[in-house]
Amino acid sequence: MSDGNSGQQFDRLPSTPDEREVEGRASRREVVDWWTERFAVPPETFDGIAFWEKGAGKVWAFAGEVDSPVRIEGLGMAFMRTRQEHWKPTTEAAQRFGAEAERNVIRLTREQADRFVAGEDQAIDWDGDWGYLIAAHGLAGTDAPLGVGLYLHGELRSRIPKGRRREF
């Protein structure tokens, strides 16, 4: 049993909202549904992956089996932020799972991709939803996801974290 939410340990998300024991914690179903609704990522993409919370709202994706809760340094991949109005995937989640996305993917030219990974904001036309988008570009015949951008008022704001930025 978890005594709430702690920054020191990882707690597995409940499968469904009905099994929720900790106030405000997302459930696995809500997480998977969110990716389906927002990005049309097929739910089976996440088969075999459990989601865990460490610290309020930070969700991790982990393919292994361990008992919950567990107090260790890391568990799988930092995956997304919940417990805020607009949930937000991490760069790494967008890169790993965004290749399956069919909605809210903004395709950039090479020049726009260069600016995006350098961390720059840029004016770009886009007819779709506002909010967090997956930015991608063509590489070696694939549609390669770069990371997450925030689209507002005709502008794509790069959300590539500092340590991940590159200037080509």
Partner: peptide, 17 residues
């Protein structure tokens, strides 16, 4: 290690110190 594992898309690793 954590940033390398994440950049490479690894999800099956548990990290201990």
């Amino acid at each position: 290690l954590r940033s390398n594992a994440e950049r490479l898309g690894v999800t099956n690793v548990a990290v201990t110190n």
